[in-house]
């Protein structure tokens, strides 16, 4: 029982972590909370479900197209919605992301449909039985994807100048521009990465938790909570926050009642923010520009 609870907590947590990374990357470079981010996750799942159900496309091409579509979507949101805005008017930018989110949800409802869909798991067969717990293969895909994407993100941020440029923008926007780093380019890359990782989270989640046009808000809130919990701006914090949130929910649902799982995780979030306002791993925000 405990194993099963921990395993499912880690799986849900890995999804939250993937979503949280998207919030964190965009926040670091653009200094806004992108409230449309949950809709990228929803779109990933919906497009994957649509391609496999309606067009009978095999799993991996469908997943690749769905993720690619999310990258393009994220790019469009930035280029059309945010790039030309006054960069100091954060409230207006956040309102735009909210509007874009609602629009994406509407588009999914119109073009893909209102039905709840369960696209196929990435690999057939399973579940594995390990010491009294059962592990669906999709669970391995999810945790594996988190590990691979985190490693990739780490390599990008610390071992390429694309990543160093993004870090520079996030640490000191003013000095970064004077090193020839284009803030707009960094923002574009941040949004594309958020689309990529968010879309991947959507396709990974859909086979176990369904795809539905209305899922974006709930997924976004969970991912945002995970990002805040770990410390907004820190990719590692996003992972830690996501896993803690997932485990808390799972343990609450398993030992108390699934009715309370959201309440308990929100109480946890509030408690941590009271003790460490910067999140578990986050640093205090650098000076504002």
């Amino acid at each position: 029982m405990l194993y099963q609870i921990i395993l499912s907590g880690l799986t849900v947590g890995a999804i939250y972590a993937l979503i949280a990374i998207g919030f964190t990357i965009v926040f670091s470079t653009v200094r806004i909370v992108n409230f449309a981010h949950g809709e990228f996750v929803m779109a990933g799942g919906m497009i994957y479900a649509y391609l496999s159900a309606v067009h009978g496309m095999p799993v991996f091409p469908a997943v690749a197209i769905a993720i690619g579509a999310c990258v393009v979507l994220a790019l469009l949101v930035y280029e059309l919605g945010l790039a030309s805005m006054d960069k100091d008017n954060h409230i207006a930018q956040v309102m735009i992301t909210l509007g874009v989110g609602i629009t994406l949800k509407g588009l999914a409802q119109i073009f893909i449909g209102k039905d709840t869909q369960f696209p196929p798991a990435f690999s057939a067969g399973g579940p594995l039985a390990v010491g009294g717990a059962t592990i669906p293969y999709q669970m391995l895909w999810i945790v594996g994807a988190l590990a691979v994407l985190m490693l990739g993100l780490y390599m990008l941020l610390h071992h390429t100048r694309v990543g160093k440029g993004m870090m520079a923008v996030s640490i000191n926007h003013y000095a970064a521009t004077l090193m020839g780093i284009s803030p707009r380019r960094s923002a574009v890359i941040a949004f594309m990465l958020a689309g990529l990782i968010g879309g991947a989270a959507g396709t990974l989640l859909a086979p176990v938790a369904s795809a539905h046009y209305d899922n974006g808000i709930f997924l976004g809130i969970k991912g945002f909570a995970a990002a805040i919990l770990g410390g907004l701006g820190s990719p590692l914090g996003a992972v830690v926050g996501g896993l803690i949130l997932g485990l808390t929910e799972s343990v609450t649902a398993g030992y108390i009642s699934s009715v309370y799982k959201d309440a308990v995780s929100l109480v946890l979030l509030l408690a941590i923010l009271l003790i460490r306002p910067q999140g578990l791993i986050g640093k205090r925000l650098p000076q504002k520009f």
Partner: peptide, 8 residues
Amino acid sequence: ITGRTRHR
């Protein structure tokens, strides 16, 4: 190294 971003 960050100073070399434009030489990528």
